[in-house]
Computed example of a mutant assay.
Amino acid sequence: MSRPQEPHRPFLPFGNPFKFILPKGSYLSPKLLALLNAFEESLTERVKSLKPGSKEDILTLSWMTQAMSTLCAIHTDVKTLITELELPVCDWDEKWIDVYLDNSVKLLDICIAFSSDISRLNQGHLYLQCGLHNLDGTSNQFMKARSSFDGWKQHINSKNPRLENCFAILDSLTESLNLPKIKNSAEGKVLMQAMYGVRVVTVFILSMFAVTFSGSTKELKDLQIHKTCLWTEAFVDVRDFISQEIRRIYSSGRITALKELEVVDTSVKKLYPLIQNGVDPNEAEQLHLLTSNLTEKAEKLSGGLDVLAKEADRFFHILLTGRDSLLCNLRIDSTVSNPAEVNNNVEREDVR
């Protein structure tokens, strides 16, 4: 299926998207209003769950995994809402479909970039393992250990080319947050308002991930939203809390906002001078303590990255299956609406 893409509407931070979605005087039945309120109340609670109990928990691997899990739940929620609205694909406006398909491709591209960077960070664990393996031997092996740690530093400070496009994609998603005008479908109006919330939270979470993986706050933006949703207050609170902490983290000179990676880097920096010129027998105990500490921190980093990778893959799968389901339904609707094509297909099957 191919449609000419319409140009994105400019993002107006202080406009009101619901003049396009729920114009003044529009009517929603009690059932539709209940569905919308239930969705937005659920979205509010999911947004609140993104705010950690302590600043120290921000942008840890466990927080990022929870955030990705939240994204999975939100996108599953909106699929459930579509079913409850009893709004078949044949009743979807072409503009809705174009927006959905365009956004889904962009989100899939971002997921691929993130998975690539998680894999890159995990590959750095091999350097650490090699370095640690050589710390139990002779001075010659200490040289090999230093070489491995040098390789690890170079590896984690390298840039992932796939991340470069993420910020441009996120900018595009931000600019297109305002959704198409809904004229005659009450169910469509509910869906568009729900989709607005899903897209806002999705862009915010993925933006935080992009900043974390890139190691720079240059592209960090305080996403502006409209004060007409049940989840607005919760979102603003989480947005401000996390954005301020990320800026503070980078202003302190840290190489990354990812806490576990920073801890490993600190451990390597403490260990490296000790093995640089060989280890004095009096320093053997200190070497053992620093080695044990680095081993523990490195394993925690690797394990956390593995869990995050699985959750990122789950989000990718949810996006992909949702897109495939829509395209499948569109093909079915197109075939059913063209009886001549159905008859031709039957005749071809008979010939076979």
Rank of each mutant, 00 (worst) to 15 (best):
S2E: 12
P4M: 01
R9W: 00
R9H: 14
R9C: 05
F11C: 14
P13S: 09
F14R: 02
P17C: 11
F18M: 02
P23Q: 02
G25T: 08
S29Q: 08
L35Q: 12
A38G: 15
F39R: 05
E41F: 11
L43S: 04
K48C: 02
K48L: 07
K51Q: 15
K51C: 09
G53S: 12
K55D: 13
T60K: 10
W63S: 09
T70H: 03
L71I: 02
C72V: 15
I74L: 07
T76R: 07
D77L: 03
K79P: 07
T83R: 09
E84M: 02
E84N: 06
P88F: 04
V89Y: 06
D91P: 05
K95D: 14
K95V: 10
K95T: 08
Y100Q: 12
D102S: 12
D102Q: 08
K106M: 11
L107I: 15
I110P: 07
A113G: 13
A113T: 03
A113I: 11
S116H: 14
R120S: 12
R120F: 07
L121F: 04
N134H: 10
L135T: 12
G137H: 08
T138F: 00
R146F: 01
S148G: 15
H155T: 08
H155C: 13
N157T: 10
R162T: 06
L163A: 02
T174H: 08
T174P: 14
L177T: 01
I182T: 10
N184T: 11
S185Q: 08
L191P: 13
L191Y: 09
M192A: 07
Y196T: 05
G197S: 06
R199I: 07
R199K: 14
V211T: 05
V211W: 03
S214Y: 00
G215V: 05
T217M: 06
D222H: 01
I225H: 03
H226Q: 02
T228E: 10
T228Y: 07
T228K: 02
V236A: 06
F241Q: 00
F241K: 05
E245T: 00
I246A: 12
I246M: 11
Y250Q: 05
R254Y: 00
I255Q: 12
E262W: 08
V264T: 05
D265L: 10
S267C: 14
L271Y: 10
P273Y: 14
L274S: 07
D280N: 12
Q286Y: 04
L287T: 01
L290F: 13
E296D: 07
K300M: 12
V307S: 02
V307F: 06
A309E: 14
A309D: 15
A312R: 01
D313Q: 03
R314S: 10
R314G: 01
L319C: 10
T321I: 10
G322R: 02
G322N: 05
R323V: 13
S325V: 09
C328I: 09
D333Q: 11
T335H: 03
S337K: 12
A340C: 13
N343M: 08
V346E: 02
E347I: 10
E349D: 07
D350K: 03
